[in-house]
Design a protein around this nucleic acid. Structure first.
Lengths: 309, 309
DNA sequence: TTGTACGCGTTATCAG
DNA sequence: CTGATAACGCGTACAA
């Protein structure tokens, strides 16, 4: 294993100088910086995290806590995980995945949390930095701008000639669900259109049953709170003989995986997981550096499929 | 931070004794062991991984390399990841997720690899232990017993009165795909039934088109190589007016997520990811301890849904 | 059976 | 601007 000392010898300097070139290059003369960089390349040196960790009293390891029921884990977590790991690696950190509510501080510098419910937030006041995926008032969080997302969806349907736009929401009292519904309602108000909103559990069958019961007239648009609900709405519409995308238009929310499985493919409000992951890591690193940070909202993207014009 | 030294002081021994209690308790008298354990509990001591890593010239970090295209990532990777992380943590190891073909050895003791294709295997002869998810002859791997899985599925359909059982396989030349087809073929031969096998790309639409074209007679059973193909077969069967589970029966393969989304829910051969993860970690740890190990096959489980009797 | 001395790779501190 | 020294927490080798 190539160590600082090896580099120091071939560059004919002390190992402290090498360390400084890596961490505080502004304190080293340009000449020597070049010699050292040369030696680093020659020997293929890479910093040893254990050594840094010991010297800096850090662990260079972040816990990602997944609080959703493991049976319910949405596929987009695999994506989020990969994006987070990439972002953290750029800072020399490792990601450790967990799925319990212990928040064990062992060998960890900070926490990233996903799927937290209201009942978890007391446990989230920890002596180390925490960044949450999903809005949590009073805590540092990153989230898609849910209201803007459904507003975009609603407006898109209105502008594409659907005279009647309804909303399939979630029957849970969580901020993201409320915000998604708000986006729909405000847009309808803005256009002076009548609001028709329902709240369901997040499963396909619930949506299928409801839409079948309602039997929407041709020209109806449906904005849903999740791609899963949209899938159910699509199925029901097909059974009712409504044809996409002229007689009926449906827009989902999430856009990670499910929307590609459906036929027709689903138009959806896509959460930009790469941006979300980078933002979460940015806020975490800032906190680790002692800076004060504020929560951020990320604007989602409308991805057009065949369930709308 | 509580260190070995702190424990040593409150237990009135040297820190080496504490270290021994943790790593080689058989070398310490019972009396002192108890004192030390007491002190550990009192102070809430936990080993510092960086210290261990430095002393042991290890990193206590394993790279998980995900070689599938990120856009194609199947939801079960999220589950596999969590199971792997759990298993590794019991050994004091961390999991680092990667998705490039670099196999960068930096700060890593070994590799776990998933989604490797034939073309990757040269790159997999590394100077550190490697365990692969998915059978790779000549390398250490853990895989579901694919042939047994499709054999179970085929036999189940035969035994539930389906007179004609066909197979929807994958048109790729990878061992897992070949083995799944073999399980079907051998079972059909065993029962003296005629073989009818097709090979498709792994997407729902391909399966839908094929089944629509074939227009299977009532009494047909379909074994598929993946849940995605099964989803397509379900959709086509419904369009053809065949009713589940009497006129037609369909069994998928994977059983992580998709099978719950379909209606009817899908009977599937479920890969036991927890067992697979534990086995992978077991083989990895054995290799890190210098032992010689052999690949293992894990028997999958038949999970009954509503797409079969 | 227990303790002492040293080294692992890195960085902060202080001296030059 | 650069170097020597000590320290981080732990484990091996050796001594007692």
């Amino acid at each position: 294993m190539v160590s600082l000392n090896d580099v120091a010898k071939t560059a004919h300097v002390s190992k402290m100088t090498v360390s400084r070139v890596l961490n505080h290059p502004e304190l080293v003369s340009l000449e020597i910086q070049e010699d050292v960089q040369q030696a680093i390349l020659e020997l293929g040196y890479v910093q040893n995290r254990a050594g840094r960790a010991l010297a800096n009293k850090r662990h260079y390891n972040i816990a990602f806590v997944l609080l959703d029921d493991i049976a319910e884990i949405e596929p987009y977590y695999a994506h989020l995980l990969i994006h987070l790991t990439d972002a953290l690696r750029h800072h020399g950190y490792t990601l450790e995945v967990r799925h319990d509510r212990e928040f064990d501080l062992t060998n960890v510098d900070a926490f990233l949390v996903s799927g937290a419910r209201r009942s978890d937030i007391e446990a989230l006041h920890l002596p180390v930095p925490v960044v949450i995926y999903g809005m949590e008032p009073g805590l540092i969080s990153v989230d898609s701008d849910n209201a803007v997302g459904t507003a975009m969806a609603t407006e898109y349907l209105i502008n594409h000639g659907f005279e009647h736009v309804m909303y399939l929401g979630l029957a849970i009292n969580e901020p993201f669900a409320l915000n998604r519904e708000t986006g729909y309602r405000q847009t309808m108000l803005k256009y002076g259109l009548p609001i028709e909103a329902y709240e369901l559990p997040n499963n396909e069958c619930a949506a299928t049953e409801l839409i079948t019961l309602i039997n929407p007239a041709p020209g109806t648009g449906i904005v849903t709170a999740t791609d899963r609900l949209a899938l159910g709405a699509i199925r029901a519409s097909q059974a009712l003989g409504l044809s996409f995308p002229n007689e009926i238009g449906i827009i989902g929310f999430d856009g990670i995986y499910i929307h590609k499985l459906s036929s027709p493919t689903l138009t959806t409000i896509q959460q930009p997981l790469g941006v979300i992951a980078n933002t979460m890591v940015k806020l975490l690193m800032a906190q680790l550096n002692g800076e004060t940070v504020a929560s951020e909202l990320i604007t989602p993207t409308l991805v057009i499929g065949n369930s709308t014009p």
